[in-house]
Amino acid sequence: MKNSSGARNLAILGVVAVVVTLTTTLVALKIYHDTGDIYLDRSRPGYLPEKKEEDEEEEIFEFQDTGVITNGVIKEYLEHFEKEMKKEEYFKTETLSGEALGIPE
């Protein structure tokens, strides 16, 4: 008698645990979507850099926030900064033009 009620309670606990997990997961996903984080998250699969991009050696310049500021320091800083700066246009409006989408406008 004791064993069967114990087993039953365990089963109920299992079901409740699954229901609670599903509910909290759904709530978290809804918040993730509604706040817009889903559109900003760079860790989503497909948006991470590809392996070949990671393997390429990249000189990472990290400017220290302590130390003397000399002309030499600023010069090196500017050289690296200039290499980093992007000079291309993003989110061009022509991408959604009628021609691009195949719409006879």
């Binding site: 400017f63 926030d65 993003y90």
Partner: peptide
Amino acid sequence: LGAYYEKIANNYIIPLNAR
């Protein structure tokens, strides 16, 4: 772009001003 802005902020703008 997000990675780029973060790099510019964390490796260039903020540390220089902090220094």
